[in-house]
Computed example of a mutant assay.
Amino acid sequence: MYNGPLRLFHLSDIHFGLVDQQAIDWAKACIDREMPHAVAITGDLTMRARHPEFQAACEWIQGLDVPVTVEVGNHDIPYFNLYQRFFDPYRRFKAIERMVETQLDLPNLAIVPLRTTTRAQYQRFPWSNGWVTDHALKQTLAQIDALPEGTRVLVTCHHPLPERRADGKLLTINGTRTMEVLAGRKVMAVLSGHIHDPFDLTEQTPAGPLRMIGAGTLSKRIRSTPPSFNEIVIDGDQIRVTARNLEKVPTPAMQIDEVPENALPPREPGEPVSPVGKVPPVDPPVH
């Protein structure tokens, strides 16, 4: 039985439809050359959940010769087809998921999904931020509780779980309770995306600390860091994170120290900015 360190590549927010072709070509070359034990993609495969975007994402993922697990992001739910958004929001994503999802066989490690997307949110508009519904949390906890005792657990979701910033801005509904429950289950870390800047933060909860690891983007929609993905090495109970990027910026200069409100470039004083500060002069395009 393999007992050495496990290496995962954590990708997020690839946004086929507005993808950075050089970045995904480089990421694929890294995967082909280094053959990590698995690739975890934490949502936003597409820009607008269009069929051609899902097709491009599917072809790219199927070209990877390693096990892959994918989670849905808010951009993977139809924006323009409101009938499908309300009555069958995950149809296109599930079709892709069935084609690309691989059974992961990692020694003493389970990667458990947590859905943070919803078709609508009565509390607010727009509906781009997260919501952990009671049903979604129950499904995740059931999977964790069914694992053999002592199994190390990573949870994957799209949205970071912190619920509020100091200004009271709602980020992920039910995130505070979710973090406490996951900390109580001794989850090693929660992997997420959505922000387009990488981070590695530990949140204190009444049930203990919970580590949260966010990946950057491989799209043209950068926030304050160049396109990147996370290399995650799990050695026993230790996790090491490297924010890999084409510009070879050191990881500490890539990571933000607070979860911002959204993935848009920081425009107001006090918004979290990475030390590298690669903020685009204008907001990135949205098609």
Rank of each mutant, 00 (worst) to 15 (best):
P162M: 12
A40W: 01
R165C: 10
P148C: 13
I61A: 05
E149Y: 11
H15E: 05
E34Q: 14
T251W: 00
V181R: 09
V19F: 02
R92I: 05
L264N: 13
S228I: 04
P206V: 14
H15L: 06
A142D: 14
Y2E: 13
K278P: 01
S228Y: 04
A183S: 11
S192I: 13
P265L: 07
G4L: 09
Q204P: 03
T225V: 07
D197C: 05
R240K: 14
E59H: 11
V190Q: 02
P266Q: 10
P285M: 15
T156E: 13
D65I: 11
A136T: 14
G4W: 06
P280G: 05
E149P: 02
D20E: 08
P269H: 14
S128E: 12
R223P: 03
A38S: 11
L6K: 13
F125G: 01
F54S: 00
H196G: 03
V72H: 02
K28P: 04
S192Y: 12
P275A: 07
Q238C: 12
A243C: 09
P148V: 13
L109S: 06
F229N: 05
R223C: 00
L137M: 10
Y2R: 12
M35S: 15
L210R: 09
H135T: 15
A56M: 10
R119K: 14
P284W: 07
R124K: 11
K94W: 10
R48W: 07
L11Q: 08
A57M: 10
N262T: 15
T118R: 08
R50Q: 13
T69R: 14
A110F: 04
L154K: 06
I111E: 07
I234S: 05
R211P: 04
Y79F: 10
L82T: 12
V181K: 09
N108G: 09
L104D: 08
E34A: 05
V72N: 00
R177V: 12
C58H: 09
I239M: 08
S224T: 12
S219P: 00
G17C: 05
M1Q: 15
L137P: 04
V181G: 02
R33M: 01
T140D: 06
G43H: 08
P252G: 06
Y79K: 14
I256W: 01
V112Q: 02
T225D: 03
G175F: 05
P160T: 15
R50D: 08
I96F: 06
P265N: 09
E271C: 00
K138N: 15
T46W: 00
F54V: 07
A23T: 06
Q103L: 15
D20V: 04
T151K: 12
G63H: 01
A243P: 03
F199Y: 08
P284Q: 15
A110Q: 12
P107L: 11
N3L: 15
E268K: 13
R221N: 06
I111W: 03
A183R: 10
R50F: 02
E268M: 14
L154G: 02
